[in-house]
């Protein structure tokens, strides 16, 4: 579907915030789903980018970092330009009608973005834990603050927030006796593995958002699979990208 790029900004160098005008997608979008964007230039395949937010039943917002030729080409798009976008695709985060304890959202790096829409849709404001490389790469903390009960920040070098892993904060929150009902996470695989393991050890339900090199985005080409603990391989685009953390074999 062709959608007009309504707004574009650069959150920090190489990190782009796009808002596209597409009422049908905005109405249908659920937290954790993604759009599949044709970038133009010599990038042959589409690029899957998670939905950061859907606004006023009209706009879909997504944020991407320039990592290769596709994202570099997409970054050149100008407002009013039409973008070829498929979506919303995939199974997003399950949003419960009520929570019996805290919901904890843990994001690392550019994995934090799909958690914003989730934070807004949950029946109560969640605890949000964000991990960044350093202060320069830290973004969106203010927006998360508006949607969260509390925001905790960690960075690898300690230049902002807690020095160390964002997962340390989850462990100390659990150790403090907080009653946590659900954990949702998106970010680097090593981080999500620790989150999923921690959740499992404490009998907390955990949803993880997986990423893999993708083809069609709709489930037909079966290239973007991840391995499950039962040994099966499931499609990240169609069966996921969000899976039950206890069912994913992060080393598979």
């Amino acid at each position: 579907m062709l959608c007009k790029l309504a707004f574009k900004s650069e959150l920090r160098q190489g990190l782009y915030n796009f808002i596209i005008d597409c009422p049908e997608m905005a109405k249908a979008a659920k937290p954790g789903q993604f759009v599949h964007v044709l970038c133009g230039g010599s990038a042959y395949l589409r690029r899957p980018i998670s939905i950061c937010d859907a606004v006023n039943d009209r706009f879909v917002r997504f944020i991407f970092e320039v990592r290769g030729k596709g994202t570099a080409e997409l970054a050149k798009a100008q407002p009013e330009q039409l973008l070829d976008v498929l979506g919303p695709l995939g199974n997003g985060f399950e949003v419960p009608e009520e929570l019996s304890g805290e919901a904890v959202l843990i994001g690392g790096g550019i994995g934090i973005f799909p958690l914003l829409m989730l934070a807004k849709k949950l029946p109560q404001k969640p605890l949000v834990m964000l991990g960044f490389r350093d202060k320069q790469s830290a973004v969106m903390i203010r927006e998360f603050s508006n949607a969260a009960k509390e925001v905790f920040v960690a960075s690898d070098d300690g230049s902002i927030g807690h020095k160390g892993f964002v997962t340390d904060m989850l462990k100390s929150k659990i150790a403090s006796g907080a009653k946590i009902d659900k954990i949702y996470t998106c970010g680097p695989v090593p981080m999500m593995k620790i989150v999923a393991d921690t959740a499992k050890e404490n009998n907390i339900e955990c949803m993880v958002s997986m990423e893999e090199r993708m083809g069609c985005g709709v489930g037909a080409c079966v290239t973007c699979t991840c391995t499950m603990t039962d040994g099966s391989r499931r499609r990240v685009c169609k069966d996921g990208p969000v899976f039950n953390g206890a069912e994913v074999d992060f080393d598979g």
Binding site: S42, L45, R213, M214, G215, C224, T225, S232, R233
Partner: peptide, 14 residues
């Protein structure tokens, strides 16, 4: 079961 991922790589025009 098929092979492990990554199972797809973009190249020039394909």
């Amino acid at each position: 079961l098929g092979n492990r991922s990554p199972r797809i790589a973009e190249v020039n025009d394909g």
